[in-house]
Amino acid sequence: MKFLGFLTSRIIKALIVVLGVVIINFFLIRLAPGDPAAVLAGQSGASDPAYVEQLREEFGLDKPVLVQLGVYLSGVVQLDLGYSYRNNMPVLTLIVQRIPATLLLMFCAFLFSLVLGVLLGVVAANARYSRRRRWLDNIVMAVSLLLYATPLFWLALMAILLFSVVLGWLPGFGMETVGAGFTGWAYIQDIALHLVLPTVTLGCFFMAMYVMLTRASMLEVINMDFVKTARAKGVAPNTIIRRHVLRNALLPVITFAGIQLGQMAGGAVLTETVFAWPGIGRLMFDALLQRDYQLLLGVFLVTSFMVVVFNLLTDVVYRFVDPRIAAGAQPGGVQ
């Protein structure tokens, strides 16, 4: 019952946050320079003021802003995110077509950064604590800081030049080979090859943060009394690291992982644009250039909903990882 009450309260708060994000994004889009009706009229080669006014009426831009907000919110409740006149199809249909590619990229980049980041963080902490292999800790931290300081777009471009143009090992653009007609296992392999460079590029930045966070957490936990007690009882060093140190050190990592998933949705915009990956990040960039406000609002809504869901899942996982949270106590022991 406690868990059900916790989940219910979190869902209600999540819905309130999504509603607030939708309203704020709506007003921010309306404050942005440029008239979508004028842009669409210019692209069609017609600059007649009467035609522009007709388009404004068709888009509902001639109504007061609060009326437009009410119409938009009523449509969101009915899962109607509007119509993209630039793409000639409903916004929800466009997003549903693109979101699997973004989720695939985010999931692979998340696993890559989390697994490799935690592993290298453990290696660096062990090397630092042993005092005999500090050179290994210095190398891991130097590489992590370098990746953290490297701009994402520059890393993406260098990866394309090196592994696609110069070496020819991996495809540099798109999600699949156009016109190849692969099916079955060959199709999966083709997508996997196209996924390597975007995944590594997007995951390297977050991997560096996981390395530094895991290392700092382990060095803090490894000097605590319960670890010293386990070592005095003769528990094997690997068991101490795995069961006592790493389990407690992962708590802040799990907290950061939920935040990182939301940040990946923003990082995917750059990655998808550079690698021509057909996800909602690329869709958002195109909608911004085309002043397709309905599509832009729809992408903002979906990405904010994804961030809220990821944070909700993080809260649930945290309660299972740390029993003190489920019991109603804070990590420091304060009720």
Rank of each mutant, 00 (worst) to 15 (best):
R128I: 07
F27Q: 04
G60A: 04
P278S: 04
D225Q: 12
V235H: 07
Q260H: 09
T239K: 13
R86I: 12
F107Q: 03
M1Y: 10
L61S: 08
L116I: 08
G332L: 15
G70K: 13
G332V: 14
L28A: 10
F182C: 06
A46G: 09
F256C: 11
M141F: 05
T201P: 09
L213T: 07
P331L: 15
Q290F: 11
L250Q: 03
A216D: 10
R30T: 07
M158F: 13
N25G: 09
G281Q: 05
S144W: 02
A208H: 02
Q189H: 10
W135D: 07
V211P: 09
L19C: 10
Q294P: 15
L197H: 03
T273S: 05
A14L: 00
R319Y: 13
A125F: 01
L167H: 04
L270F: 12
M158N: 04
V274G: 01
L283P: 12
L288H: 12
V227W: 02
P198R: 05
P100Y: 12
K2S: 12
W277V: 08
A257N: 03
L193F: 12
G184E: 02
L312V: 08
A192H: 00
M106D: 06
V227Q: 00
A232Y: 05
P252D: 14
E53H: 11
N88S: 11
L250K: 00
S47L: 13
Y187A: 12
T183K: 06
I325L: 14
V200F: 13
F275N: 05
N238S: 15
E272Q: 08
F107W: 07
